[in-house]
Amino acid sequence: MLDIQQLTGGYGTVPVLQNVSFTVPDQSIVGLIGLNGAGKSTTIKHIIGLLKPLSGKILVNGQSLDDDANAYHQAIAYVPETPVLYPELTLQEHIDLTIMAYDLDKKTAWAKANDLLAKFRLDNKLAWFPDNFSKGMKQKVMIVCAFITDAKLFIIDEPFTGLDPLAVHDLLDLVQAKKAAGASVLMSTHILATAQQYADEFVLLKAGQVRAQGDLATLSDKFGIADASLDDIYMAMSEEGARA
């Protein structure tokens, strides 16, 4: 679904990412793991097209951004780490805007939206400005707007901080439902236990490079730790840096 080949890029001419290559297979959940500053958010910014690669290729559903920008964007739904909303739009209008921009069928999209709004206990706040909500509630709005689209690839940047445990649970249900329906998910997170439980594969980023990719068994092998948890592997990876 997502195929990143030899991506080098960053802000301006200073590369943050060096030759990053990894894939998100169809119908899978991939966790993007790394320390602060390892390049997770930069990678995501490249995928959604906010940053242009210095070299390398990013293919979503076999297409690059330059091939067909509209089709590329249509295939992606994004939930940012810090919620960003249009201050002049009500909650209802945010959903209207999403429906318009992605040209979704009004009835089915609103049916999905109402479902999600009820789940996140936002259904009585349709006429409010979500820009004034708390961080967790804003994040829920972002999730609703992302999950009513028919995107093939969901990119979720650190979704678990700020959400209450109930909402985390609901989000994970949604992610799995999307996977079952044929979509793929790339999720960056620091909550390793949750990632280990729900993701099929992991991409470990370190200092702008991919240290390893694979499921837990593969990673255990690579780091030479038998029956390792994601936490063990993460600690092993961060200590490598201390030695080098």
Binding site: I48, G49, L50, A69, N70, A71, Y72, H73, Q74, I76, Y78, P80, V84, L85, Y86, A101, Y102, D103
Partner: peptide
């Protein structure tokens, strides 16, 4: 005014 809102760039709309 919408330049800081990432979705302004992500919507599948003609430039």
């Amino acid at each position: 005014v919408h330049d800081d809102i990432v979705f302004s760039y992500l919507y599948p709309l003609p430039a």
